[in-house]
């Protein structure tokens, strides 16, 4: 086998960054890359191969019981903030019991409400996704506010508020499929091994 390394590019502005604040009950894999003011809540799971960099936009908030799966990238623009549930300003707010699945890109300013599911390789940029939404795979959500409890099908490109307002409600069948997808990461939690 041939495996070659690639050095992580140095970020010149990251020298004076705040350190992440990680709750002692959270599990952050050693191959996860967290820098800057990232506030990680209780029982959060952060998988290997993730890159959570609050080096331009900051701070980031990741709520209780949330899963960040492999290959997820969370980053934020220098400008632009969202209001978190605590009425403070964040570059990225991710609520509690959220599932951010493999290879999702969350680019701040971005707000993701409690119990929302973001499917494989979808992108949320400059947007608010309300509580209890299900966003399926390979979707793009940009420059919009998605009301709570909405369903975004795979491959959807939602970039106007008109589109966002017409989205259908989540059905039980959607919730079941999302749980099936998330099941793949439950085994990751060290206590369940």
């Amino acid at each position: 086998m041939v495996v070659r390394g690639l050095a992580a590019p140095p970020t010149p502005w990251s020298k004076s960054l705040a350190e992440p604040t990680i709750d002692e009950t959270a599990y952050v894999h050693s191959f996860a890359n967290l820098i800057g003011d990232v506030r990680v809540g209780p029982n959060v799971l952060i998988s290997p191969g993730t890159s959570i960099r609050a080096d331009e936009g900051s701070p980031f908030y990741i709520g209780k019981d949330t899963h960040i799966q492999e290959g997820v990238v969370i980053h934020g623009l220098d400008r632009g903030r969202v209001i978190g549930d605590d009425n403070r300003e964040y570059s990225v707010w991710i609520g509690k019991q959220v599932s951010i699945t493999h290879m999702v890109l969350v680019h701040g300013p971005a707000y993701i409400g409690d119990r929302t599911f973001i499917g494989f390789r979808s992108t949320v940029f400059n947007a608010r996704v309300g509580e209890g939404c299900i966003v399926m795979m390979h979707a793009l959500i940009q420059d919009v506010e998605i009301p709570p409890g909405k369903y975004v099908p795979s491959g959807a490109v939602i970039t106007t508020q008109q589109q966002a307002d017409r989205l259908p409600d989540v059905k039980e069948v959607d919730r079941q499929f999302a749980n099936h997808v998330v099941g793949a990461n439950e085994a990751m939690r060290p206590e369940s091994r």
Binding site: G119, M136, Y151, K171, D174, F177
Partner: peptide, 10 residues
């Protein structure tokens, strides 16, 4: 292998 609900938007 995506067996999620497909819907028509726009």
């Amino acid at each position: 292998g995506d067996r999620s609900r497909q819907i028509v938007l726009d």
